[in-house]
Design a protein around this nucleic acid. Structure first.
Lengths: 158, 158
DNA sequence: CCAATTAATATTGTGCACAATCTAATTGTC
DNA sequence: GACAATTAGATTGTGCACAATATTAATTGG
């Protein structure tokens, strides 16, 4: 664009600092990076017939032995529309069982099978395999995690 | 857990620093934050009958007037399996046209309709509406963007 | 010049995400 | 104790993401 006012600063009307310009988006790199993460995990997890989210759910179960759908959803920021079919798939793979709570028939208690528990040992090398593709300092990783959590918590409010 | 060896440091075998523990995942907060972003944009964009990704694609077109699917995919880190149906939806909404290149019949040139161009003006307040839900400093936002881009570029290699 | 190869999209199938809605069980409240 | 309100999940439908594959057009090597 030609600057027709030579005495004025060379600034066009909407190009620099246009909030509707892709370069000025903070969230899109975040979005792309999150996609890249699941893409990078995919071949590592395919070996164990798991998707990234299934792997995350298994991690929760490895820590707690038993969770209901509501608690799981709160912890992972996901709803039953996502979790119900996912948990059915994990059940179909015989990694978890989905039983109803005795005290409240509405709640589904998810727990590990023996195969599900055993999988943790087999997958011990997965985090390191991903980590070796990432060359960020410990400080950078910590900061990325902190900022992601901060953004998440702010966007989760009203 | 009870420490049965009072002279030993209080450390359990696999709980602290277990790389298969959810708390120790860097990428999961990133994943959750990216979901939170599209969730936060949803009501703002619903007013314009756009999804988050459709909005991003429109942003590319507002800058360039004309792109083919390959270039768009490289820029957004997405493939034709994602973009083809999305672009058909934008075409159905009469925001873009998808014509074949004259010089190479394989390539699809995407360009804006008048309505598509006009939409930019109408959406001028969207970025600010999202931004006011986020209380991060400029430095933090810049750092989040930088780290996301760094992670993305490293995971996109080999 | 034409068969083989390569390149650009499109298609198909699976698995998230999530809004909206539905069902069934539980918990008030009178 | 009946019944309205609430709660936990399940279901349905839309739109990404992406691997795998198919289709069609261009390019190239002999």
């Amino acid at each position: 664009m030609h600057n027709v006012f030579p005495m004025e600063p060379i600034v066009t009307v909407d190009a620099p600092q246009d909030p509707l310009q892709l370069d000025n988006q903070i969230c899109f790199p975040l979005y792309s990076a999150a996609n890249a993460v699941t893409r990078a995990y995919r071949p590592l997890l395919a070996e164990f017939d798991l998707t990234y989210l299934q792997y995350i759910v298994m991690m929760v179960l490895w820590e707690r032995q038993r969770v209901n759908v509501k608690t799981l959803g709160e912890e992972l920021h996901l709803d039953s529309g996502t979790l119900t079919p996912l948990l059915k798939r994990l059940e179909a793979k015989a990694l978890v069982v989905r039983q109803r709570s005795e005290s409240d028939e509405r709640v589904r208690e998810i727990s590990l099978t023996e195969a599900g528990r055993a999988l943790k040992v087999k997958m011990g090398q997965v985090p390191a395999k991903l980590a070796c593709r990432v060359d960020l300092s410990v400080e950078e990783l910590t900061e990325l995690k902190r900022l992601s959590q901060k953004l998440l918590s702010q966007l989760s409010q009203g």
